[in-house]
């Protein structure tokens, strides 16, 4: 479903190279975890996948369903089924959450040639998704993410993912800022979406999240490259021993 080939990318503004020859393949139905020390390029990778223009691709390609997405803007990628759950969802004052959900949902449907949904149907879907994530509907009357706690923001990201039903979900440190109960609710939300035709790329620092969202593969990212790939036991090994021996082994 997702194929990253020898990707090199730098920060457009100052030319700093962050991604240096990254290769990664995620198949339909797979949950792939990406782990790695601070500064290894994990968040950058998530932004590049979503199409943020702060980064410049200098080499390599990203194929989604066999086609390169490098020429697509973030909205086109989203309409094609790519979703990024942000590590730090932005607060946008003045944009009502429900209005935003309606606009996003219908923009994607339009782009795919589907009929737009009417407000009652959207409300029904939002209510259903919110209740499964134990979210209060009153929260959704507020401006987008404004005044939401860290945990509420993460829930709101998963709520959007449920509503938009993407095929390729990228979760950037969804566990950061969550307490144990919230982590459980959010993980259950993600697990409920697991299906043979949907793939996940879960970026995290900690094994903790992977106890709830059990990955099929674990990839260690270091200095902009995947230096080791393994099964879920690799995450346990990292939790116990840290990154040092994996890094030494690769060097």
């Amino acid at each position: 479903m997702l194929e990253i080939k020898n990707l090199h990318a730098k920060i457009a503004e100052d030319g700093t190279e962050i991604i240096r020859g990254l290769d990664l393949t995620v198949k339909a139905g797979e949950v792939a975890a990406i782990m790695g020390p601070n500064g290894s390029g994990k968040s950058t990778l998530s932004y590049i996948l979503a199409g943020r223009d702060d980064y410049e691709i200098t080499e390599g390609d990203i194929l989604y369903d066999g086609k390169s997405i490098l020429g697509m803007d973030p909205a086109e990628r989203a309409a094609a089924g790519l979703f990024l759950a942000f590590q730090y969802p932005v607060e946008i004052p003045g944009v009502a959450t429900l209005e935003f959900l309606k606009t996003a949902l219908n923009a994607q449907r339009r782009a795919r040639g589907q009929d737009e949904l009417k407000i009652p149907e959207i409300l029904r879907r939002v209510k259903e998704a919110a209740s499964s994530l134990e979210m209060d509907m009153a929260m959704l009357k507020r401006p987008l993410n404004v005044g939401f706690s860290g945990g509420e923001k993460k829930r709101a990201e998963i709520l959007q993912m449920k509503l938009l039903e993407p095929k390729m979900c990228v979760l950037d440190e969804t566990d950061s800022g969550l307490d144990i109960d919230a982590l459980k609710v959010v993980s259950e939300g993600v697990n409920a979406l697991r299906s043979p035709d949907r793939a996940f790329l879960v970026i995290t620092h900690y094994q903790r999240l992977l106890e709830h969202i059990v990955p099929d593969s674990v990839h260690v990212l270091y200095r902009g490259r995947v230096i080791k790939t393994g099964g879920k036991e690799l995450a346990l090994h990292l939790e116990e021993h840290g990154y040092a021996d994996v890094i030494d082994e690769a060097a």
Binding site: G51, P74, A78, A79, F86, I92, F100, A107, A111
Partner: peptide, 8 residues
């Protein structure tokens, strides 16, 4: 970027 990443 955030709004566009949702398909808008």
């Amino acid at each position: 970027f955030y709004l566009m990443s949702r398909g808008i």
